[in-house]
Design a protein around this nucleic acid. Structure first.
Lengths: 207, 207
DNA sequence: CGCCGACCATACATGCTGTCTGGTCACCGT
DNA sequence: ACGGTGACCAGACAGCATGTATGGTCGGCG
């Protein structure tokens, strides 16, 4: 039968309605407490149409995450291009991450809680964390090449592992903030603490 | 047809059978892919008995976690009592955490993946992280009082937030290791990276 | 005009949860 | 010896979820 995956904007309007409805519902219910029935009711779409456009509700979430993070990818751009000093670009990157999470809290929270139990979501999330880790590695290597003191400090350190650690720490803290878990629900505390961690781990700087 | 194996009057023996069966099954299936039917089949227990001892499978997991972490709590004891230098006790604590996760990987993985969607598990896990955070705060304050250089370095730092961050970073890395996500599936990499992070964030030491 | 693709309503098979009923056994006090 | 009680079992049940299948409606386009 007809397969029109990526139709033009005028094309698959129902697909967008489903995505929008799911995103709105995620602000109220957790992902696993969300049923397909609720989504199609909110979207005003039939069950058959839902399963025509998406293989499962996990596929809907995957699409929402791709859209959310795609928009936020540029936010971390300045950090990877070592155009300015580490402190300024680092803070910009951390603030960018906080903004990304703030404006997509429900969707990101959902995938963080679900990637452990769905292969498709797992692959997506690990890949996303991988791109952030790679960007961090690139930045560290660039700074290390330009700064002998930093090079000496990172002697014997597994940089990819450290970059991955910092990336995952960010994931966790942003997630806890989105959940309202103190003290990370206070944005200033969150950003300052991440700053301290990155600066001390990489540059031996105080915050 | 009903028989109650000629076992000794071990109070609630079925309860233990259920817990053991669930723990074994968690090594093969993820928690949410695990059904009550499977647990009671493996435990050789009726459905009614299951719901007599536990309100839900979440309650089983909560009990398993309490037992696992209860045994591991002593592992972190040396760290909280500042009996030796930070580097040695810190490494002992981190290794202890790795051991705890290694010997209870399935159970801990299950709760990490599930506390976001169950109030009871959430409260339990947040409380556990809280106790680790509190222990860390205590140790930091003790070291800070004894070491003027460290006190100066931590000037203006939100110590509780930093302690919580280090605790949650541990949670995340141990979890990723239990999931087999590289590079944390390599125990040496995991421990060394955590060491570097803690030492640089708290003591400005290289690893 | 008639076909076809997009869409809908509904029903279905399956699986899981949590509750309920009714029954079997062992033990314990009288 | 008898009847009660507690521990346990098998199985049925209602409710809800998912993913698929069936059949029908509507509008545009060749």
């Amino acid at each position: 039968m007809a397969r029109r995956d990526e139709n033009q904007p005028s094309g698959a309007e129902l697909r967008v309605r489903i995505l929008d409805a799911a995103r709105e519902l995620l602000k109220e219910r957790s992902f696993d407490a969300l049923s397909v029935a609720e989504i199609i009711t909110a979207a005003g779409v039939s069950r058959a149409s839902f399963y025509f456009y998406f293989a499962s509700k996990q596929a809907v979430l995957a699409e929402l995450v791709r859209r959310a993070v795609g928009a936020g990818h540029e936010a971390a751009e300045p950090w990877v291009q070592a155009s300015a000093g580490p402190r300024e670009t680092l803070r910009a990157g951390i603030e960018g991450g906080a903004d990304l999470w703030l404006s997509n809290a429900a969707v990101l929270r959902a995938i963080v809680e679900s990637w452990g139990s769905d292969p498709q979501l797992r692959e997506l999330w690990l890949a996303l964390m991988g791109t952030f880790t790679d960007a961090t590695i690139g930045r560290i290597e660039a700074d290390r090449a330009a700064d002998p003191a930093m090079a000496a400090r990172l002697e014997g350190v597994d940089v990819p592992a450290l970059a991955a650690t910092l990336t995952w720490t960010g994931e966790r803290l942003y997630y806890l903030a989105a959940c309202g878990v103190p003290p990370f629900d206070d944005r200033k505390v969150l950003v300052d603490t991440l700053m301290h961690l990155w600066l001390s781990a990489l540059y031996a700087m105080d915050s």
